[in-house]
Design a binder for these strands. Structure first.
Length: 411
RNA sequence: GCGACCGUAGCUCAGUUGGUUAGAGCGCCGGUUUGUGGUACCGGAGGUCGGGGAUUCGAGCUCCCUCGGUCGCCCCA
């Protein structure tokens, strides 16, 4: 690899082979399942005005200042490659007046961009599948979204070892009361907290709850739980979500320390977590964001959604069985190449996946065809001065191949 | 932004306390053999050992810098 070799940008990936197959399997499964739940497909721009993503987060956070791919276009406007789907969807909801469709169930997938240091299951350009219910304030929306996620993971065959962790952040009143109590509690233990968590205490105290530092975790264990601060309404909402999940047959565990970093989140927060992906164990996550669309200048529009990293799901799916051609058409004598091309097209039009083996040493082509694992082989060769077509296939496929190629004239 | 580990052929990797012209397997290309066949054998292409500097008579190997990768921390919409 010379120094002049073109290289991909850090954190981007060229997905190919079994990994690409696994990736496609995830997307195809998502598309199938979202239709079962009657989620409608939407396509959004890959970039937006920076404000679309920055405003809901607060201008000063690390996320905005350091982790977005932002740039100026030729008109001097600040644009940003989408780091998530939700904000763009919310913007589209507002600009297109989609409240007329509320409650609106939307599904989409595609590339997202975050300027981060790559590590296992984290890239700068990565891909997510995404589902949202916009304009739905009822806990049933949360339940349906979770049921869909649950079914998706099961249909991907990766539900083993994956746990749905569920929590509520309450309504704003609950949340503020809880935050206040947490700050008070952690202030009392400030000296024992890690350096990172002391910073969090000032910047984003809820985040202390998911600190990875063992010393912090000991302190967190005795922190006041959200349940002590839930209003009657918030408690009732969460109970309805739990009851709905039970009715839907979705298993979960309560994780009272599961939080979200941003203020527009309300009520339900959830993550499907695996222990098989190292530090990046969240495989699908989301929650209710009743405050977001207002923040972007729309009407009050309670909404809930989730997203999942396709790469991470693909890693869990593992390598699918290699796919083999139905038919390998082998040209053992180049004189018969046109006939072989004709045959290959015939077969493809009939829905048989067909590959032409017509390059390299003519003598080795048949062996390569056999080695490729193709289900059947049609070989074109000249023997004793006569053009011939030979088949290697079993039973009904052999009959089908003979039948399909009957009209082919070899001379 | 911080830390640890790793960069040798297209791929996976050997390479001794620093010592001649840097190797293997797989893959690829060609040939022979086989001739209803996944065989065996022979040959070939392909490396400034990530890049630069230093030490040394001599560096793939030691040291420094740099670039890249992996994993973790931070952050996580």
């Amino acid at each position: 690899m010379s120094q002049n070799t073109l290289k991909a940008i850090r954190g981007t990936q060229d997905i190919f082979g079994p990994e690409a197959e696994a990736f496609a399997f995830v997307v195809e499964t998502f598309e199938r399942v979202r239709k079962l739940y009657r989620f409608r497909r939407a396509e959004m721009p890959v970039f937006e005005k920076t404000e679309v993503f920055a405003r809901p987060l607060g201008e000063t956070t690390d996320v905005v200042s350091k982790e977005m791919y932002s740039f100026e276009d030729r008109g001097g406007e600040s644009l940003t490659l989408r780091p998530e789907f939700t904000a763009g969807i919310a913007r589209a909801f507002i600009t297109n007046g989609w409240q007329q469709h509320a409650p609106l169930k939307l599904a989409t997938h595609g590339p997202l961009f975050r300027y981060e240091r790559p590590q296992k299951g984290r890239y700068r350009q990565f891909h997510q599948i995404n589902a949202e219910v916009l304009g739905a304030g009822e806990p049933q929306a949360d339940v349906e979204l979770l049921a869909m996620a649950d079914q998706l993971l099961k249909e991907l065959g990766i539900d083993d070892g994956v746990t749905l962790q569920l929590n509520t952040l309450g309504d704003p009143e609950s949340r503020d009361a809880w935050r206040g109590a947490l700050v008070e509690y952690f202030e009392g233990h400030r000296g024992q907290l890690s350096e990172d968590s002391q910073t969090r205490l000032d910047v984003n105290p809820l985040r202390i709850l998911d600190s990875k530092n063992p010393g912090d975790q000991a302190i967190v264990a005795d922190a006041p739980p959200i349940d002590d601060f839930l209003t009657d309404e918030a408690r009732d909402f969460f109970r309805q979500v739990e009851a709905g999940l039970k009715a839907a047959g979705v298993e979960y565990v309560r994780n009272p320390r599961l939080v979200r970093g941003f203020d527009y989140y309300r009520h339900t927060a959830f993550e499907f977590v695996t222990d098989r992906l190292g530090a990046q164990g969240t495989v699908l996550g989301g929650g209710r964001y009743d405050g977001l669309i207002e923040t972007l200048g729309g009407l009050h529009t309670p909404s809930v959604g989730w997203a999942a990293g396709i790469e991470r799901l693909a890693m869990l799916v593992g390598e699918p069985a290699q796919s083999h051609a139905d038919v390998m058409v082998v040209v053992e004598n180049d004189v018969l190449l046109p006939k072989a091309i004709e045959a290959a097209q015939l077969l493809r039009r009939e829905g048989l996946s067909t590959e032409l083996m017509a390059s390299g040493s003519a003598r080795k082509r048949y062996d390569k065809a056999v080695k490729s694992g193709a289900v059947s082989i049609v070989a074109f060769d000249v023997r004793d001065g006569a053009n011939q077509m030979r088949f290697k296939a079993d039973g009904s496929l052999l009959e089908r191949l003979q039948d399909l190629t009957r009209t082919l004239s070899l001379d």
